[in-house]
Amino acid sequence: MAFGPHLLLALMEGVVSASLLALTALGLSLVFGVMRIVNVAHGAFFMLGAIVTWYVADLSGSFWLALVAAPIAVGLVAILADRLVLRPIGYEPESTIVATIGLLYILEQVVLMTYGPYARPVAAPFYFRIDLGWFGYSGYKVIVAAAAALLLAVTWLALSRTTLGLYLRATQQDREIAQAFAVPVGRVYTIAFGVGGGLTAIAGALIVPVQQAHYLMGLDALLLSFIVVILGGLGSLRGTVVAALIVGLSDGVVSVLFSPTLAKIIATLAVAFVLGVRGRGLFGEEAA
């Protein structure tokens, strides 16, 4: 293939991974913004979304049902984790990190015990090929990118137009003032954690037909999400989306033209360089 079409293919891959990455990282960013905690188990939620999708699609034969079931199941797991572990330790930042690392291993190993060490695919719900002359491109991937973009827009609307969104934003800006204005902060925390897990679970579900479900797939998702939220600036949703586009595109392009491993090394070093120049990331708040 000539370089021009090859670059086009790489860019298309980049757009697909950028949109999924935005969805994954948005969950992490939302949780950090509202609750001021770093959820290390975020990648495990992504993985769990993919695994649930495989189970539901395998048992019911319907990918669409799986796509609905995955975020609900993972959201419930997240809510349970919030009530049983995070709330009792009072969301203290360091304890929460330790607890979510523990949660990561528990979820991963439970999946290993039940689902096993296999990588299993789920058939895409539809198949068509977009012929671009130089190469054909999977129609499913294009739809996935569009669906992820749509979900981002929906999340955006929900945050800016609904009462729940208002509660979330109020808690993010000032927890105590929000409480004084009768925002049920405790419940908002739980919901934020559940929604954060649910969003990343959808990304995990959407990716299964392309990438197969495996119990260790969460680590890459976690790493890329971390890169994105740090580059975008901790706590800034806008920064997260912009950074996801940058990181996703470059990751996709370098992955196709060189190697996926090299792509992740370069992305990390690039972000380290940005931090050297600007410690709070692109859109981060002033360090308190």
Binding site: V38, L223, I230, L234, T268, A272
Partner: peptide
């Protein structure tokens, strides 16, 4: 250069880059 929870995230990122470099 970073503050608070970013320290932990960045150390993890860099370590993962180191790990991937040993594979690459």
């Amino acid at each position: 250069r970073t503050a608070g929870p970013a320290f932990l995230i960045v150390t993890m990122m860099l370590a993962q880059a180191f790990y991937l470099a040993t594979l690459y």
